[in-house]
């Protein structure tokens, strides 16, 4: 009951933003931020720092302790780098983190998105798939064509190369006409994709609002003896 009242008050505070920025909205927002920060700190200590750092250091074998020295050295470097005199030391862990993140992200994007997606576009023109997949073959062919036009058009839209005209040196260089035409087609696909994303965002927000209104209605119903 108590937490229900708290939840109701916080929900109303957040919804009060409809009448503009006010104290109650800011109070609820700051409360959420503060609670999240505190909770995250406890979570990191419980799930990361204690089991992967302090516990091996205290009760682990010498082999485990030697392993812990690596993150310990990197952590100390980061802390020491906060002093301007030793700021150079912090470059080592930061470079390590940046390099590792770039490697994982780029590797995943190339081998997990670009290559598989290109392969999927090419395989969409496989006649075997047209006839073995459920549905009519001409629908599959149409889907493959639309997919190809969409891919080429979208890539053409983001092609910003310019070509200088050979007949006139004074006129500004411009994009080739083929690229311009395909770029216009790509605009349509980009617009449809962004429209779908917007519809999805609105749908998610609408469901969140429905959930809050349902919560308030059920709480009030329970408060006054309803079911």
């Amino acid at each position: 009951m108590v937490w229900g009242v708290v939840g109701l008050l916080l929900t109303v505070m957040i919804l009060s933003y409809l009448i503009g920025d006010n104290f109650f909205f800011r109070f609820a927002a700051y409360l959420f931020v503060g609670v999240t920060a505190g909770f995250m700190t406890v979570l990191i200590i419980k799930h990361l720092v204690w089991p992967y750092f302090f516990q091996p250091l205290i009760s682990g074998t010498w082999h485990d302790r030697l392993w812990v020295l690596i993150p310990l050295a990197l952590a100390i470097s980061l802390v020491v780098s906060q002093f301007s005199r030793w700021s150079v030391v912090g470059r080592v862990p930061l470079a390590f983190l940046a390099g590792l993140t770039a490697a994982i992200t780029i590797g995943g994007a190339v081998f997990g998105t670009i290559i598989p997606q290109l392969r999927a576009v090419v395989e969409a023109f496989d006649p075997v798939r047209w006839y073995q997949s459920p549905g009519r073959p001409w629908v599959r062919i149409a889907e493959a064509l639309v997919m190809l036009i969409g891919v080429v058009g979208t890539l053409s839209y983001f092609h910003f190369g310019l070509r200088r005209r050979q007949d006139s040196d004074t006129q500004a260089p411009e994009r080739p006409r083929v690229i311009q035409t395909l770029g216009k087609v790509g605009e349509v696909f980009i617009g449809v994709a962004l429209g779908a994303v917007f519809a999805g965002v609105f749908s998610t927000a609408l469901l969140a609002m429905i959930d809050r209104i349902m919560f308030i209605g059920q709480f009030v119903s329970r408060l006054f003896g309803g079911r």
Partner: peptide
């Protein structure tokens, strides 16, 4: 997409199923 990229690359035999909100679905 992070989990999809890594698992589809490094463990392609592991089946991946995704359950997401409407804003991530498209």
């Amino acid at each position: 997409v992070t989990w999809i990229e890594q698992f589809s690359t490094l463990a392609p035999d592991t089946p991946i199923y995704v359950l997401v909100t409407a804003q991530a679905g498209p």
